[in-house]
């Protein structure tokens, strides 16, 4: 075990193989950044598919994106940016030892994430109703283009995977609330809040690109 030099620091979070809290915090944060690299390249594959087919069928993208509602896309963008703000505020609260503020901000973030998912649900339901289903189940005849299904395959893959990431984020933040209520976090240790925040911002960034690429083509 390392010898804690500070006198009144809370150190129960410190693992024995780290020398001090700073080393542990920096290691966790770097680990999260490495993970975000993998996330960027994971979504990168879908962006590649999007770009390749957009270069092949530009007119398809123009026609198909009319089926998407710019208004709701924009609302969801604002909702996610708002949740990014509250997650940043949550980290700030933790840094300042304001556990109550941390919990409130986390709850607002969770709420906004749920709003996002509800809007997404109604968007999906509306398309399913029209027969705009993914892949081979596509039956809609309102778009006069042979490859209309391809656009919606990409749309469902991108927004679907993004939606799964939002759900995972909601789960992580519920867990953070639970931990915060058990008084685990304080200004000397808030690593899980920080790295969950990083993850959540990345989910926001991906949506920042999905919005203009899918909704704003016309």
């Amino acid at each position: 075990m390392s010898q804690p030099s500070a006198t009144e620091e809370r150190l129960e979070h410190l693992k024995h193989y780290f020398i001090d809290s700073d080393q542990q915090f920096e290691a966790s944060k770097m680990g999260m950044w490495v993970f975000l690299v993998t996330e960027i390249l994971f979504f990168g594959g879908l962006f590649l598919a999007y770009i390749v087919y957009r270069a092949w069928y530009p007119e398809l993208y123009l026609l198909a994106s009319e089926e998407l509602h710019t208004f709701w896309g924009a609302v969801n963008t604002v909702v996610l940016i708002g949740s990014s703000l509250t997650v940043a505020m949550a980290i700030r609260s933790a840094q300042l030892n304001q556990i109550k503020g941390l919990i409130i901000n986390l709850w607002i973030t969770i709420g906004l994430a749920c709003v996002f998912m509800v809007i997404k649900y109604f968007e999906y339901a509306e398309k399913f109703g029209k027969g705009i289903l993914p892949g081979g189940y596509y039956t809609y005849e309102g778009i006069e283009h042979e490859q209309a299904n391809i656009f919606f395959s990409i749309y469902y893959m991108m927004t679907g995977l993004h939606g799964i990431h939002v759900l995972v984020g909601i789960g992580l933040m519920l867990w953070l609330v639970y931990k915060a209520k058990k008084k685990v976090f304080h200004s000397g240790y808030y690593t899980p809040v920080e790295i969950t925040g990083l993850y959540w911002h990345l989910v926001d960034i991906i949506w920042i690109f999905l919005f203009p690429l899918l909704y704003l083509i016309d």
């Binding site: 993998t38 960027i40 879908l46 598919a49 087919y53 993914p134 490859q147």
Partner: peptide
């Protein structure tokens, strides 16, 4: 860390190809 995620999305798309015929 740079290459494996692309394999993941590839195999996911392949699975979807079999499951839903997404056609990509």
């Amino acid at each position: 860390i740079l290459a494996t995620p692309v394999l993941a999305i590839t195999l996911l798309l392949l699975t979807m190809e079999r499951l839903l015929q997404i056609g990509i």
